[in-house]
Design a protein around this nucleic acid. Sequence first.
RNA 1: GCGCCCGUAGCUCAGCUGGAUAGAGCGACUGACUACGAAUCAGUAGGUCGGGAGUUCGAAUCUCUCCGGGCGCACCA
Length: 678
Amino acid sequence: MGRFPSTPSRPCDVYQELKKRLEAHLRGVLQAKYDLQPDTIAMETPPDLRMGELATPIAFELARKLRKAPKIIAQEIVAALGHLDGFASFEVAGAGYINARLDRAAGARMAAGGEAGAAAGVASGLHSLVEHTSINPNKAAHIGHLRNAILGDTFVRLLRASGQKVDVQNYIDNTGVQVADVVVGFLHLEGKSAADVRALLEELKSKGARIDYYCWDLYARTSSWYEQGIEEDKAARKRLRYATLHEIEHGGNETAEIAELISTAVLRRHLETMLRLGIEYDFLPRESEILHLKFWEAAFDQLKKTGVLYFENEGKNKGCWVMSRATNPVQNQAGPEDDAKVIVRSNGTVTYVGKDIAYHLWKFGLLGRDFGYKPFFTYPNHECWISTENGEEPHPHFGGAQAIYNVIDSRQSDPQANVIQALRGMGHVEQADRYTHFSYEMVALTPRCAVELGYDVSEEDLSRPYIEVSGRKGFGVKADDLIDKLIAATRAEVDARQTSRDEAERQRIAEQIAIGALRYFMLKYTRNSVIAFDFKDALSFEGETGPYIQYAVVRARNIFRKGNTTPEAVLAEFAKLADEAVRGYLTGEAAEDIWTLWLRAGRRTLVLEQCIATSEPAHLARHGFQLAQEFNNFYHKHHILTEEDPARKTFLLATAAVALRELVTVLGWLGIESPEAM
RNA sequence: GCGCCCGUAGCUCAGCUGGAUAGAGCGACUGACUACGAAUCAGUAGGUCGGGAGUUCGAAUCUCUCCGGGCGCACCA
């Protein structure tokens, strides 16, 4: 069963519809013939199109129960299936498979009208909240953050395409040690006051320089400064670090003012960087408000009341409020539970997980408190709000979602599990079930790439398959650097090809291609595979890449431009063709590749649902590539505009129209634009 | 010590709820631009799916075990 309530009578694409139809028909037969009602009927696609389009191995499963050979059962079922709308025939294959052949004309008609189903989208009524990006606002974004934001943004697009209402949040830890570290850098390494920092921000702005890049270096310098000198120095610097952190958390002093200036300026840069990729946010909740609006106090009451937290009187956690681990749920008897997770320290302060529990109660509307809101960043079509203590009225409402997705790398799975465990323990079982840690593996650098970038790489690291990026060490590829590099590369290609277009147009196309390449690169890997980053792979525009798919779109569009017609007009003509004609064009050895393309075009919603059910956008990326590949193959084999038979020409044009529509839709869901030319 | 992830072609990766002959891209080698633009297409070579056992009519997929690699397991944030 799916995670969410099923949506009855939802429009389906060809595959979904026919699969459902066949399944229902099979159930009828099994009921009438054997008085059986199996829970599920497995449906699959045969290895070769010549065997049919749908298949079921149901006869194998029934063999034992019915004490008959699978082949005999399959024959009996096939005999009983008779005729079914949308299907041409059923037959037994192999040792007992039941294969179904579609009525290709009917299938093509359904695929041609496919936009009705998908465009309607059908509101599932679910209100989801996706949190992604969440970069500490103390340095520039790097490639690891790009993977996070692209995965998150794409998933948002998929949820919206399926009809969900989605709020996009970017959590900002503006009062953590990481921000404290750059503040230490400004105060003690550079000797700057709040006024100096303000002047620096102005100066950088006037020069068009990036404050996040400035902080990238300062952060790395400060981190290494902590490690330098004699032990006494180190201890003193560590004390300074935590004193700074506490001043920032407390607020209302010059240190906090610098932290606010820097974190806000860096945050703006992050939003600008992500906007280059078409990534936008609705709300930016900040840790400073979670602290100052006392979210924790409200959560603490609930945690104590429900018994999730208990006070430890002995053992190593004596004097703390602790929670049992998710992996170790019950251990109430006999002695202190030293393995428990500390939520409130013996000095009375709350840990990160504690604050996170409070924040997640808010996300589900269970906290009984809310942020103040003020506008922060204006997008062409909407406003992005940020948390504040005393908000402005009126403001939109955030939080109170039914389902949440946290796009956070897999290293955080432990703390995420703790939060889910707390929710469950508090009795919020439904919410815990709809809490998804959308985890993914890191982006690392290949040793070769690290050397190429001029970093000192140890012997040990050189022998590894990849090296983890580190903001603290200043080791990694900055997001904007990569985007700039990609645009420069695509611009060179576009300049060589599009000699008649003007500067602005060429730049626009180059950006679309560069972003397409980047987004596709980050999406083509499944979430739990580590990406060992290399410029050679990321800067590739051939083969399984975003530009490959975009190029297929451009080719399809060119057909209609040169043919002086439109996809809409063509599909209207196609509707008038006789079924016999369409069936003829889609049948036979030479037509298999065309039929393959139509079939692929007819499974978009199926892939969408699979992506959502598994939280895996990579499936859609692959679907887009395969669609483009099959279209390119079709494009080469069949020259459309010189086709002499007018009916066949209409059919070929309709094929291109459907492919074009699907490619553009899929690319849109991946957040990739379809250029007019390449 | 405990937990999670990974191991599939020379390289980088797919492989949907177990299903028929394990697929792409890159790289290598052959071919195809006077066609709707070759950022393309067609073809060839290349795999005991880390090893072993088990479950099953049927395993890359599920279970166990071993080997190899990565990441987590703080009163840090």
